[in-house]
Amino acid sequence: MKVRKLIILVAAFTLLCGSVAYADTVSQKLRLLINTKSQDADGAIVADNKVYISSQVISDKLQAIVIKDDGKVSVFKPNVHMVTNSGSDIFADVKQGKVKFNTFIQVDSLRPDINALKLTIANPYGEETLLEQRKSGDSDFPDGKNDFWITMKDLSYNFESAGAYTLRFAVKVKGESSFTVISEKTINSK
């Protein structure tokens, strides 16, 4: 009886290990480069001579909105431009210290309906600060619009360290629980 169980157990392990080895030869991980920057190892694979890229990589790295619904995946890449200005001066570089500025954002082709938007800034060490947030129902929220211009409120921010600061504009699609970054702009502090 013990011999029979041992034979069945060995056969099961042989089939399992063989299946894993076969699956490994059928799919192959790729090194994914976006704008010449290497991404994580789980970003793309080749299976049956087709390349598959993670929807999370598409969303994060290409700043696109990815919606998975009813057996389909929809990808939306709105056209977004951000301009920072202090008084009448448009800038991308600042001196270290406190700067009063606002951000003008132009959005074209934003197909999904959104119910919130926000602007954040990350310092050179990656620490992110919320600068402004708006939600559906606010008087200055672009409800139901695919194309809109929006000027964020004037604010003062302390560029205390030298380096690259990253402004991030994110939206929350109706029915989703998290924000998706759809545009970034770099401000260099010297």
Rank of each mutant, 00 (worst) to 15 (best):
K68I: 15
D147V: 05
L167E: 02
Y125A: 05
I7H: 09
K98Q: 13
S59V: 07
K37D: 08
I121A: 10
A116H: 04
L33F: 14
C17W: 14
F91C: 08
A44Y: 03
N158V: 12
N123P: 05
S177C: 07
S88W: 12
D89A: 06
F159Q: 05
V57N: 13
S38H: 12
A11G: 10
I90K: 11
V80P: 00
W149S: 05
L110Q: 07
I150H: 00
A44N: 00
D147A: 05
L130G: 07
D138P: 04
I90M: 02
A47C: 13
K190P: 03
D113M: 01
S88F: 10
I7Y: 05
D108L: 12
L155H: 09
S55L: 08
I34Y: 03
G144M: 05
D40Y: 15
K72T: 12
R168N: 00
A164E: 03
I45T: 06
I187L: 08
K174I: 05
L167R: 04
K37E: 10
I90Y: 06
Y157L: 09
V171G: 07
P124C: 03
G43A: 13
F104E: 14
D147S: 08
D138L: 04
D89V: 06
I65H: 02
I65T: 00
S74Y: 03
D69H: 12
E176H: 14
A11L: 14
F148L: 00
K190F: 15
K98G: 10
V51R: 11
S55D: 04
S189I: 08
F91L: 03
S27Y: 09
D138K: 02
F76V: 06
A41S: 13
P142L: 01
K5N: 13
K37A: 13
T84D: 07
K72C: 06
P78Q: 02
L117V: 00
R134T: 04
G175K: 12
Q39N: 06
Q96S: 15
I114T: 01
K118T: 02
D93R: 15
N102Y: 14
K95E: 14
G163R: 01
G97R: 13
G163Q: 00
Q39I: 15
S156G: 10
E132T: 08
K68S: 06
V10W: 09
K118M: 07
L117P: 10
Q56C: 09
D140W: 09
P78N: 01
F101V: 02
L30A: 11
K190M: 09
E127K: 14
F179W: 06
S19M: 15
S88P: 04
D48M: 07
S161W: 10
N49P: 08
L30Y: 12
Q106R: 13
V94E: 12
F169S: 06
S139C: 08
G97L: 15
K100Y: 10
I182G: 02
K72R: 08
L30N: 12
T186D: 03
T36D: 15
G126D: 04
K172A: 07
P112L: 06
R31S: 10
H81K: 10
L130E: 07
